[in-house]
Design a protein around this nucleic acid. Structure first.
Lengths: 200, 200, 200, 200
DNA sequence: TATGAATGAGATTTCATTCAT
DNA sequence: AATGAATGAAATCTCATTCAT
């Protein structure tokens, strides 16, 4: 990467990081582009060289953060050779995600209800595709070599993600209807039930 | 209600309806109070006689629309004397909600990610509307006289609502990962599984 | 007119006057809306209550100024009972216009070559149509009671206006190809010739 | 011309052509240098190697386009040995110009109100282009060998140019007060009248 | 010559809110 | 209770110009 290219990436990253800080502390609405560039130490016009508007940078951040979560989960899972069955793998990933979001409320608030299937479509996170991961592929791999067959793996994954993210959100942020500690057994049971409902 | 009182309600209703139209067509952010009053045929200052700001009217709309959905479901269920078991009742309500949201994408977009447990608190709290219903009470009643006992009815309801609303959203609006027609059997199976997982 | 209505007209007029001053001294491009409102002693948002943008106020000004020129000419002509023939009337008006533009270079620069556009394109000058004048009607009246008939009065007027304004512009502002004093006999002769060419 | 020199001219020409397209389609004000270089496929900095600013390229275009029009007219006239009298020659040129502008509205819009006496000064002054013609000379030649003498040939030419360009503009672009087809006889008659008014 | 990333002043425009009527 | 003109802070976005490569 040339020095100019490096500098460009540096600016882009500075804008993304600053925007994330401000979005999570002040909220999307009350964060202005002026705020972002000022804190990022970049000229106003520069913002528009990299992003279309406030919502563009917001979308890219959500996609990026969501991807990071699953990347983390997948990496962690790979290390655990004791986990073999599809059911255990999915539970592991769910637990990993819940833990992470419980520990990082800022992150949870940010990706909130956007941590969903839509993410995996469309969204190219960085401008340079190399860093991106094909999550459909990652998830499909979970089902390889399984003794048990599943009706529709993609749908199963989808349902679990939606279930986990929406229940966790309410529980962690508002303790409704229960705090995450109390709710967790219910979530785990339900995930296992959802999975079993899909076994052939 | 006096004629003056009627006129007042008329303006309030006009503002609510117009706001709903605009929020669903343009989104909360891109709808201004000016837009609302202009379309509603009301003076700018009048808005502030009824609502605090844009977010106030938005919240009241969410609560109102969400309540209407469940009111409709509860009413319909009451007519069906053939449905007896808790499981069948919950499936009936879920189906009712999915049907409704599938037919009314505008409504789906609007309450979509907002249709959650937190809502009911607000609905119950705001309650100046005489028509208000205590939904916790309504839902609790579903479990009366049941042969089967459930671990925590409130949590069960919560999980189903979150599951149904988030999966329906993605499916109906984006046909991801499947259209609602194809996804439906998976949703139904999963709900039944979630319910069974809570039986004592 | 109510006091509020008076105040509104006052603001509108202040904006128009200030815009004219600035357009003529700095030019359209280098005049900003900020400049206008600042000098007019009005808030920035107020501008947009009365005009769409800089070009809107510019168009209305041209139309207004062009109308004023001809209103002046028509008024003056009315006082001159000695002028009877269409030819003399048209020459009188032309001379009046040339004199005016020669004395007021600012005005000439401003309406430049748009004199006929201002008249023939029905731009709304005021916000209230009633106050506007239909110059086509005014001009048509010149031909009433004439001994001589003309092929197409409207076309004749149009050609004279275009001829007078474009030749005057170059002559007065740049003395090209001659100063207005020297050019004038040529213009007069030509106008008379154009008129005669249209006599039936 | 060396290959480097060719490449240079190629860029310059690309900029001129693109600027012309944009000026005529979007107008001078709403065309930015960024627009021009982007469409021309040239780097931003490169623009400044060839032109001072937006207005510089605009002026050069006007002069060039206007000169081309008259060059075309003069060339065409030279071929026509049947046209002898000054009057017929001037009518021929006028008709040629009107035809051209009627067929090419883009060109008409562009040189529109700029096709005037002032131009010829600029054209003659700038003259780095080898192809430049001394138009005063060209026009003077029209009057050579004429049986009829004219008061002031330069003024006559000036008046005709102003008359033709301003009336054609309004007629072709706005059909005001008549479309060019209908207006044409009036224009022709008037030109002949103007010419005759100058005969000694 | 040519490039194009970066700049930052400044222009346009929006809009919640107030307040005199 | 209702109005809507006025405000002006603040947000968005543009763009000519520079300069290191």
């Amino acid at each position: 990467m040339s020095r100019i290219e490096q500098k460009k990436q540096h600016k882009r990253t500075a804008l993304l990081n600053t925007a994330f800080e401000l979005f999570t502390s002040k909220g999307l609405n009350r964060t202005s582009i002026s705020d972002i560039v000022e804190r990022a130490g970049v000229a106003k016009g520069t913002f528009y060289l990299y992003f279309k508007d406030k919502y563009d940078i917001h979308n890219r951040l959500i996609a990026g953060k969501a991807a990071a979560v699953f990347r983390g989960a997948a990496d962690e899972l790979e290390k655990r050779e004791d986990i073999q069955s599809v059911e255990d793998k999915l539970i592991f990933i769910s637990d990993y995600v819940i833990d992470l979001l419980d520990k990082d409320h800022t992150l949870l608030t940010f990706i909130s209800k956007n941590l969903s299937w839509g993410i995996f479509k469309n969204v190219l996170i960085s401008s340079r595709e190399e860093t991106d991961v094909d999550f459909r592929e990652v998830f499909r791999r979970l089902f390889e070599n399984s003794d048990t067959a599943y009706k529709n793996p993609e749908v199963l994954i989808f349902m679990i993600i939606e279930f986990v993210s929406s229940t966790t959100y309410s529980s962690v942020l508002y303790s409704e209807p229960l705090g995450i500690k109390e709710l967790r057994p219910y979530i785990d049971t339900s995930i296992r039930q959802i999975i079993r409902g899909q076994q052939l």
